[in-house]
Amino acid sequence: MTDATTGRPGSSYACATAGFLAIVVAWCAWRVPAAVTHLGDGIGEVPVEQGSWAGGALGWLGVLIVLRGGGAAVGLALVAAMPVTAWLLVVWHAERTSTAHLVEEVLLGTAPQLCVLAVHRMRERSAARRPHESPGRELRPLLDGIATGRLDPGDPEVRRRCAVAAARVRRAFAETDQVEAPLLHELRACADVAERRRVAVDLEVLGDLPEIPRPVRRALTEAPLVALADARTHARVVVVADERGVAVSVVADATRPVSPSSPTDQVTTVHQWEGEDLWIHTRWTRPSTSRSSRTIRS
């Protein structure tokens, strides 16, 4: 798994695991001899309060392991933490408190970690609904590179990346507008970015557009967006809707092949070159008429 914040695979996971194990070992080295010494005198006399700090520390590192590691890593962490868990049970037994009190303690102790896990899971799910990267994620390194001089604004490749990023930002803004035909609104936003580069864009529509879910619209507009960003002087965008689905086509004098977009269950993208002209054709087949009714995955 890639660490989203640093871009390095699993660095935070490795640190968390090392820290987790270090705490378990240190805790055992410190607590187990004392426990053994005191065992002969009876559990009730063990100075239990001195061992409970490990629970909280392990909990937070455990969160990182859950976030970054797989199921096996989480299982190993639970096994490694068993001495600490056993100690907590001993404390509970020694203090002769009720089961309800134990449950309350456990819930109170783990609530912050569980909240963090829940929020993270929600963010992941909402990111999974977006088939393509959020524009901000693409924009930040680009702006950073230009600001620090690492990227040359005169470089055609940099300009192209900027055009694509600008179109994605415009599309993201357009997505939040309340309009009758969001697909056309979003395509117009992409066309507008191209027109600012003096590309002549025609947009034609055939048929009545059905309601199209946002992830499908993103998948439908992704390749056309890149083709429009690549167009040199002219582009023709055609939207065709019928009872079976919706197709978006772009014919443009593009400069380079369009990078393949994320495949989805219901949206297909094909492209053809003829001389200088590129034809991009994306098509969404409506679920009721497709063989499968699964939803789009990222």
Binding site: E204, V238, A247, S249, V251, Q272, E274, W279, H281
Partner: peptide, 12 residues
């Protein structure tokens, strides 16, 4: 209506 040429249509 959508493409640039009949040969493109033919390939499709």
């Amino acid at each position: 209506f959508q493409s640039m040429s009949k040969s493109a249509v033919a390939r499709h």
